[in-house]
Structures are given as structure tokens and as C-alpha cells.
């Protein structure tokens, strides 16, 4: 992904991003700033640290009172338990596999449907374009928990309850609007003249898109797909309402299901959570540049 869309569009004047507060304090950060940031970091990161610690502690140390911060025995048994049970593969590992399938397929579908739609909205004079785009976005206004009951009832009619296909469809439906909005920003950045030139060269409209615009969109597509992937991977509400059996269930409800018996195997919960969080961290790292853009939906840095 060495080439970005930036190369395709002229670079604007370099703006001075230094905030006034920074210039005030000179080059370094003030002591107060560092102190506040440290407090914030400890508060925010403590649960994460605790989760990681718990996942590698011996069970003795997990339940020790007072809690042991540093002086504990390290073990990887909990991680082994996440993947293997006495009879072979654990049911948790099955859930992780389900998560991979459901998140992967729904992301591919959302990308395949959303990218051409974004291109069309960017390039063509569509009737009531703004209204259509608003309508598409408005499907994201409803929190899942509000729409899950009607969807549950519909799914029961169609026999989609407790199927991976059902989850894939609902995640795709949620990701397509996001993909369209974010990709439209990227397509807008690529001059339409490349396609015009290609059509005069003798290519059809679609060939022009495929051969000349699409390659310039790849970085944007990758970033968008990662966001869709993270959404599907993390999704909890639909997963817990629409699935029940172990061989369909995705990781979030499966991990939640570990808590609530008479005894809770906190080591296993922590290890499963670490395994669950890893892909998200890796992907978030890959698209960190676009995180802000993604939050503002398609408003790509100019």
C-alpha cells in the first residue's frame, strides 16, 4: 500500500497544525500536563493491564487476597484452555472461528456492495442524491438494541434465527451505509478526468473505473474494510439475541457466557478477552491514520 490517494490529487498548501497551547508552553510539555496525562493513562489502562495480568496468572494468584500485582507465577494454561478442551477443540475456539467467518464474510459483502455504490454517488447525477445519502446514513441512527426485536421476528419467519447467514446479513446491512459514506469521500478525492480519459482511450465506463480509479482507491478500501471488520467482530447485541447454539455463536456472547455460573474461571475469561482484543488492536494500529476520518464519516484529510 505504498501509494496513497494523495498522490492522485494535488497537495494543498502545508498548514500549520501547531495549537496555540503548545506554542505557549515552549517545546516541552509542562509538568502539569504530564501529571494529568499519567493519571488519565493509569485510570484508562488499568483494566486492560489487569486483564492481561489475570490471563497469565496461576489460578492461586488470580483468587489471592490481597490481590498480587507483581509477585505471581506466570502460566499460559488459560490460553491453552481457550483453544483446547478435554475432548479436543474447545467451544470457545469454535466461537472465535464463527467470529472470523461472520466478520470476514460480512465485511467482504459490505465492501463489494458499498464501493461501487459510493463510486456511483460520487460520479453520477443521481436524483435527490443528498436525500438518498441521508436516508442511507439514517439506517445507522437506530441503536441495534432498538431494532433487534423486529429483526428477531422477521428472522423467525425466514428461518434465519441462530444461523451464521443471519448474522452475516445483518452485519452487512449495518456496514454498507458506513462503507458508502466513507468510500464516497475517497472517490471524491480521485479526479473524474482519469475515467473520462480512459473512456476516450476506448474503455467502457466500468472498465475505466476498474482499471484506473479502483487502484487509486485501494488504501481507502483497506481502511474502510478494517472499520467494518472491527464493527462486525465486536458486535454483541445482535449476536446474543439472534443466536443461541454453540456452533453458531460468535466470540462476544460466548465470552460473556463464561461469566454467570456458580463459579467464574476468571483466568479463562481474561485469556479469552486478550485473544479477542488482539485482532482489533492490530487492525486499529494499521488504520490509525484514518481513525479520525472514520469517526467523521468520509471526511478525508485534504
Amino acid at each position: 500500500m505504498a501509494v496513497s490517494v494523495d498522490e492522485a490529487v494535488s497537495t494543498g498548501p502545508v498548514r500549520d497544525h501547531t495549537s496555540p497551547a503548545r506554542r505557549f508552553g515552549g517545546r516541552g510539555r509542562s509538568v502539569l500536563e504530564i501529571a494529568l496525562l499519567t493519571v488519565l493513562a493509569v485510570v484508562m489502562l488499568f483494566p486492560v493491564l489487569w486483564m492481561i495480568e489475570t490471563s497469565i496468572k496461576e489460578n492461586r494468584d488470580v483468587y489471592a487476597i490481597p490481590a498480587k500485582f507483581f509477585d505471581f507465577t506466570v502460566t499460559l494454561d488459560h490460553f491453552k484452555d481457550v483453544f483446547v478442551a478435554s475432548g479436543g477443540r474447545s467451544s470457545l475456539s469454535g466461537s472465535f472461528l464463527n467470529s472470523f467467518v461472520v466478520a470476514g464474510v460480512s465485511t467482504v459483502l459490505a465492501t463489494v456492495l458499498g464501493v461501487p455504490a459510493a463510486w456511483a454517488y460520487s460520479r453520477f447525477a443521481v436524483k435527490a442524491k443528498k436525500d438518498q445519502l441521508f436516508f442511507i446514513l439514517s439506517t445507522r441512527f437506530m441503536p441495534p438494541v432498538v431494532v433487534v426485536i423486529p429483526i428477531f421476528l422477521m428472522y423467525r419467519q425466514f428461518g434465519l434465527i441462530d444461523t451464521k447467514l443471519g448474522l452475516i446479513l445483518i452485519y452487512t446491512a449495518f456496514n454498507v451505509p458506513f462503507t458508502i459514506w466513507m468510500m464516497k469521500g475517497f472517490v471524491d478525492e480521485v479526479p473524474a478526468e482519469y475515467e473520462d480519459a480512459a473512456m476516450l482511450d476506448g474503455y467502457t465506463r466500468l472498465q475505466a473505473f476498474w482499471r484506473f480509479t479502483l487502484p487509486l482507491l485501494l488504501p481507502g478500501i483497506a481502511a474502510t474494510a478494517v472499520f467494518a471488520l472491527i464493527f462486525s467482530w465486536n458486535e454483541f447485541v445482535f449476536a446474543i439475541f439472534l443466536t443461541s447454539s454453540d456452533d453458531v455463536r460468535t466470540a462476544p456472547p460466548a465470552i460473556a457466557g463464561l461469566i454467570g455460573g456458580t463459579t467464574v474461571d476468571w483466568g479463562l475469561v481474561a485469556a479469552a478477552s486478550v485473544v479477542f482484543a488482539l485482532p482489533v488492536l492490530v487492525f486499529a494500529y494499521l488504520v490509525r491514520k484514518h481513525l479520525v476520518a472514520g469517526v467523521t464519516l468520509g471526511a478525508v484529510r485534504r
Binding site: 473512456m199 476516450l200 487502484p215
Partner: peptide, 29 residues
């Protein structure tokens, strides 16, 4: 369609394909 008209055009801002070499740009038609 533009392709069916058998015309060639030089665009005001050139519209050269940014990822293609000059050779590939010229070869494109």
C-alpha cells in the same frame, strides 16, 4: 458512448494516469 465515437482528447489538466509511466499513458489507447 465516448469509446464508440472514435475521438481523442487532450484534457485541460492533462488527466494523465498517475500510477502509469509516460509510456503506459501513451500506450493506453
Amino acid at each position: 458512448a465516448p469509446a464508440a465515437r472514435d475521438l481523442a482528447m487532450v484534457f485541460q489538466n492533462y488527466a494523465l494516469y498517475p500510477r502509469h509511466t509516460a509510456y503506459e499513458n501513451i500506450a493506453s489507447p
